[in-house]
C-alpha cells in the first residue's frame, strides 16, 4: 500500500471516530474492510428517508467557488454549539438545491445569505424542517467540470476570537473528473468540519487551490476528505484537503 493510501485511510478513520464513536466501536476502522463497512453504514443512513436526520440545506443560484467558500465559512461559524454536535454526528450532511434566495427569503428562514444573493443556508436541523423548501426546489444539478483556475486568496470575514492569531491555510480541491456539484459537497464537508473543530476562524486567510489531483497528500494536511477512487477499485483518493500554510 502506498504511503498516501495509508494516510487517507487513517484520516478517514479519524473523521468517522470524531463524528460517530459508535461506528468506530462497531467496525474495525484500522482495516480496509471495516472502513468500507462503516462507509456503507453511513451511506445507508443518509439514504434513508428519515425526517429526524440532521441536515442543512443550501440554496444555490450560481457559483463562484472562492466566494462560495467564504460564505460557507461564515455560515459554519454561525452554527450554535448545540446544533453543531448533532450536525457533526450526521457527518455535516448538507442538501444542495437549485433556487434563487431572493425569491425565497420572505417565506423561509435562512441562517446565512450571501451578500450577492447567490446562495443561502438553512440552519442544521431535522430534515422535516426543510421539507417545504425541498419540495419547492430541485436538487442542484451542475454536471459541468470544475474549470482549472489560478489560486484564489480570501479572508474569513469577522473579528478574530480574542487570543487567537489568524492563520493561513490552503484549501485544495482535486478537479479531474469533479463536477461543480461534487466540488460543493467535498469543500462543504472539509470547511464545515474544520470550522466546527476550530481550525478555521474569522480573520484566517485561505488559499483555494484547484489541481487535477491532490498527490502527494501534503504532509501538513489537517483535514482530508477521501472518497473511493472510481478508476482504481479498493483505493481512496483525496477529493479535498485543508493544509497548514497555503
Amino acid at each position: 500500500m502506498t504511503r498516501t493510501q495509508q494516510l487517507l485511510r487513517e484520516r478517514t478513520a479519524v473523521r468517522i471516530r470524531a463524528a460517530r464513536p459508535d461506528l468506530a466501536d462497531r467496525h474495525d476502522l484500522a482495516t480496509p474492510d471495516g472502513l468500507l463497512d462503516a462507509h456503507r453504514h453511513i451511506a445507508q443512513e443518509a439514504g434513508a428517508a428519515d425526517d429526524g436526520q440532521i441536515l442543512a440545506a443550501v440554496v444555490v443560484r450560481d457559483v463562484d467557488l472562492a466566494r462560495w467558500v467564504r460564505d460557507t465559512c461564515v455560515f459554519a461559524l454561525g452554527v450554535p454549539p448545540e446544533d453543531a454536535a448533532a450536525w457533526r454526528a450526521s457527518f455535516t450532511r448538507t442538501v444542495f438545491l437549485a433556487g434563487n434566495p431572493d425569491h425565497l427569503r420572505d417565506r423561509f428562514v435562512f441562517a446565512h445569505l450571501a451578500d450577492d444573493g447567490s446562495a443561502a443556508w438553512t440552519a442544521p436541523g431535522p430534515a422535516a424542517g426543510t421539507t417545504t423548501l425541498r419540495r419547492l426546489l430541485k436538487l442542484f444539478d451542475a454536471p459541468a467540470e470544475v474549470p482549472p483556475a489560478p489560486a484564489r486568496h480570501l479572508t474569513v470575514p469577522g473579528e478574530p476570537p480574542p487570543g487567537r492569531v489568524p492563520v493561513t491555510r490552503g484549501l485544495h480541491l482535486a478537479t479531474a473528473g469533479c463536477t461543480v456539484a461534487e466540488a460543493l459537497v467535498h469543500l462543504n464537508h472539509v470547511i464545515a468540519e474544520a470550522v466546527l473543530d476550530g481550525l478555521i476562524a474569522p480573520g484566517d486567510r485561505l488559499t483555494l487551490h484547484r489541481v487535477p489531483r491532490i498527490n502527494p497528500l501534503p504532509g501538513h494536511a489537517v483535514r482530508v476528505r477521501a472518497v473511493p477512487d472510481p478508476r482504481l477499485p479498493g483505493r481512496l483518493r483525496a477529493a479535498a484537503a485543508l493544509t497548514d500554510g497555503d
Binding site: 457559483v63 437549485a98 433556487g99 425569491h103 444539478d141 454536471p143 459541468a144
Partner: peptide
C-alpha cells in the same frame, strides 16, 4: 433560474409565488 453556466438546467422560477 438559469444554471447553464454550471452545466445545469434552466427553470421557470415562480417560487416567489409559492
Amino acid at each position: 433560474l438559469d444554471q447553464r453556466a454550471v452545466g445545469g438546467p434552466v427553470f421557470l422560477d415562480l417560487t416567489r409565488h409559492g
